[in-house]
Amino acid sequence: MSADSSYPTASSTATSGGRAAESRAERFARELRDLKVSDPSDGHPRLWQRVGAVLMVLGIVVGVAAYLLSHRTSSSLTQGDAITIGLGGVTLAVVGSAIFLRYSLTGFLRFWMARQSFEMNILAERFMSGTNGAVPVPRDPARNYTRNDS
């Protein structure tokens, strides 16, 4: 990621009257120079969602395995280990569920919001075609409307 040296630097703009005198193009160039271009993390949410799901399943498996381990022994020491492993499994499952929910909910909410916006647009278009562009006058709540009102 390289910045073109032919664009004015922050110091050059400062000497020519400061940032207040900057044109929008110069300010744009300066802001872009400061911009940290991160990796296009397109696949990251999906990766985290998968990691969350795997941790969740792994946690449950570890928990069940710890339960079985504690059942197959009468040694209190081994049972203590099983409890520790079981708690680890539960922690894994909780953390995994949280990660999974965080990334799956984000995707769902984004989709939901886009859908809401889309449906609102359709409703507005229907409304406009129905009223032929005229805006309905809201009813006056203070007035007592009766059947004979025209």
Partner: peptide, 18 residues
């Protein structure tokens, strides 16, 4: 953009820049 290679930059960052 303005001489800076921003390939792969997030749309949010570009929007904030202008």
């Amino acid at each position: 953009l303005a001489g800076r290679d921003v390939t792969g930059a997030r749309s949010l960052d570009l929007a904030r820049s202008g």
